[in-house]
């Protein structure tokens, strides 16, 4: 079977700085997580895989074809980039339709495909509002909609859950898993193990421009649990959230920042579960943003590099 992605000795430099260092990896069909701390080379790998950058050394193929300067391959690839960049004055529907048209669909088919993609990311209610007025979670979901609008075989998602609230996160994870079940291959990057783990067990670990390991995520799970996990929550009532988590098992420390709560926990699974319950009940008001610094993952990577 032709691998979805095959990279052979791929290196990429940005001037004197190396972005990716002699990476050889094969990605098979299914969901694969690309896990690594910020600056590890995830985005460089994603940009190479999506043909935005050309390898300085080595070769990179998608479905057996080179991707650089091969626009035809984008019929088979859907890409959700990391950056929060849009045509802000367009409505979500206009934007997704226009991008579907760029894929070669006629106007009517593009409209239908856009409507379907928007429905799949649960954005019908706001589809005719300008993207400039969307919340962070909506913006992430409309990005996902443009990635799936042409029904690609391979979805490449660069930090797709970044900044989403807990409910949006749970919904997005469910969608990604569902797409995987439908037979799509998905490469999804994150610096948060918990996120990747909830989507797939199959991971590529990347650090300092190198693939450190590939395989089952559960093997590094024990390692990560040895390090406290930090979560930043921007919410309407951070003090209320703080009260809820004060006595929660596994919580090591709590810190308040303007409109936000920073929690350090040794039991991230239980913590996220409780946070999702609180978000769903609305007991502590709306939770606007959830991010996790990668210090904990960095520590695991240091350990892996040493060993």
């Amino acid at each position: 079977m032709t691998p979805v992605i095959s990279a052979a000795h791929v290196s990429k430099w940005y001037g004197q700085v190396i972005g990716l260092n002699d990476v050889s990896v094969t990605v098979q069909p299914g969901i694969t997580g690309l896990l690594g701390p910020n600056g590890a080379g995830k985005s460089t790998f994603m940009k190479l895989v999506t043909g935005q950058l050309q390898p300085d050394k080595g070769s990179l193929r998608i479905f057996g074809e080179p991707v650089w300067r091969n626009p035809g391959i984008y019929h088979r690839i859907g890409f959700c980039p990391e950056q929060d960049a849009f045509y802000e004055r367009m409505t979500g529907r206009e934007w997704v339709t226009a991008l579907a048209r760029l894929g070669g669909m006629d106007e009517r088919r593009a409209r239908d495909a856009a409507a379907e993609a928007i429905a799949r990311v649960d954005l019908e209610e706001v589809a005719d509002r300008r993207i400039g007025g969307y919340s962070k979670g909506m913006r992430q979901r409309i990005k996902l909609a443009q990635a799936i609008v042409h029904d690609p075989e391979l979805l490449i998602l660069d930090e797709p859950l970044s900044g989403m609230d807990p409910l949006g996160r749970r919904r997005a994870i469910r969608m990604i898993r569902e797409w995987g079940r439908q037979g799509r291959s998905i490469l999804v990057s994150s610096h948060i193990l918990h996120e990747i783990e909830s989507m797939t067990a199959n991971v590529l670990l990347i650090s300092s421009g190198r693939i450190l390991a590939e395989g089952d995520v559960h093997r590094i799970r024990d390692l990560i649990d040895e390090h406290p996990h930090t979560v930043y929550i921007r919410a309407a009532d951070p003090r209320g959230l703080g009260r809820e988590f004060l006595a929660h098992p596994g919580v090591i420390s709590l810190r308040f920042e303007p409109n936000a709560l920073v929690v350090e926990t040794a039991a991230p699974d239980a913590f996220y579960e409780r946070l999702t319950e609180l978000a769903a009940s609305g007991a502590c008001g709306p939770i606007e943003e959830l991010t996790s610094p990668d210090d904990n993952l960095q520590a695991v990577f240091k350990y892996l590099v040493r060993s």
């Binding site: 032709t2 479905f63 626009p71 035809g72 760029l102 042409h150």
Partner: peptide
Amino acid sequence: MEQATPRPGAGPAGTGVLAASMRVFDLS
């Protein structure tokens, strides 16, 4: 070698420069 083929619902592979330009024009 496996070639890029459009999925059902997608346009033809290798959309021509002029046709694609008109779509970029519409968007821009």
